[in-house]
């Protein structure tokens, strides 16, 4: 990896300050994203995936949630440190985001064309002098919305769920961002439309040469769509690496457990594996490795000291005392 990463997240820490205490929703997350790469971010509900995304784009809830440490280095500068007005130029234009619920993320009182066009009005791109509505139609065509001239004049409530999702993607693409964050983009769509949308996303990502962060619960989706995968548990990344390797040879017991929880074709009748125990209470995390109370391979050291991230030369890393990763020392 001789090139500098497009996006580099270093020791990101985002805490929620609740009346019951400080909750470390993101607790020292680091990863790099190189040009054109796509990374899957997986983990149980509540593991902090959305929090990582929102911290990167700096759109956390106003009250009680704050990024308290770390860096997000994007094209050479730490965007956690820039002013709000500079950040506005990054949002949409440099880093785009697709929100979870397509049914809710379009404004009900403006036409679709207006909402897509707003991206061009907010971020005028010098290289393209064509009228805005032309460009709106182009981008709607790109996300495969049929008869865009007519559709652009309609309101979101006249669209189906899948079309709304593609409109949201069109809005993200309209800014031609270098990084696209998609936070569980397909959870509220039915399965056939899910696949369609993911294919579209993948295709567009390759066409435009964007980086993609794809948040999901579904390792199957990651396997089809992403180059790399990062597994999150209790606010930390416990394992990262190229998709094939991580899925074929998981180095962390949690990844292994996640893989076993996937129903296998032909495996009818066998009981679906479930991860024992409950996700940790982040207000009062267990000592040592957060996964240790649920881990089948727990050792005495696991309850005492948090395992460090061990990385090998292929970009694989895992935070587990029991992992067989050969650490390379710089």
């Amino acid at each position: 990896m001789q090139y500098d990463p497009v996006l580099s997240v270093r020791n990101l820490e985002t805490h929620c300050f609740t009346p019951k205490g400080v909750l470390k929703a993101v607790d020292g997350v680091s990863f790099d994203l190189h040009s054109g790469q796509s990374m899957g971010l997986v983990g149980e509900s509540g593991s902090g995936k959305s929090m990582v995304c929102n911290s990167i784009i700096r759109l956390l809830p106003r009250h009680g949630v704050r990024t308290v440490g770390g860096q997000v280095i994007f094209s050479g500068r730490d965007i956690l440190g820039i002013s709000e007005s500079e950040m506005r130029r990054v949002r949409g234009r440099e880093i785009g985001m697709i929100l979870q619920d397509p049914l809710m993320s379009l404004n009900p009182v403006f036409t679709v064309g207006n909402q897509v066009g707003e991206m061009y009005r907010l971020h005028p791109q010098a290289e393209d002098g064509r009228p805005i509505h032309q460009r709106v139609l182009d981008v709607l065509r790109k996300v495969a919305i049929p008869s865009p001239e007519q559709r652009a004049r309609q309101y979101p409530f006249q669209f189906s769920g899948g079309m709304r999702q593609r409109t949201v993607a069109a809005i993200a693409l309209a800014g031609r961002p270098k990084v696209l964050i998609a936070d569980e983009p397909t959870t509220s769509l039915d399965v056939t439309i899910q696949d369609q949308f993911l294919c579209l996303l993948k295709e567009l990502q390759e066409q435009e040469g964007m980086c993609l962060i794809l948040v999901t619960h579904d390792l199957g989706i990651v396997a089809e769509t992403c180059d790399n995968v990062a597994v999150m548990y209790a606010g930390r990344i416990v394992e990262v690496g190229p998709v094939r390797e991580v899925l074929m040879r998981p180095a962390h017991p949690y990844t292994e457990a996640l893989l076993r929880a996937i129903p296998k074709p032909g495996g009818r009748g066998t009981r679906l594996y479930q991860i024992d125990g409950e996700p940790p209470n982040l207000l009062d995390p267990p000592p040592g490795c957060p996964f240790q109370p649920r881990c089948a391979r727990a050792m005495p050291i696991c309850a005492r000291t948090t395992p460090p991230m061990k990385a090998d030369e292929n970009g694989r890393a895992a935070a587990c005392w029991a992992s067989d990763i050969e650490e390379v020392r710089a």
Partner: peptide
């Protein structure tokens, strides 16, 4: 709502988010 969040994601300023969206 999510559509307000999307308006922020697009890069709208706070006052445009409130007054327009």
């Amino acid at each position: 709502t999510d559509y307000i969040k999307l308006a922020r994601v697009k890069g709208n300023s706070d006052s445009r988010v409130v007054w327009k969206h």
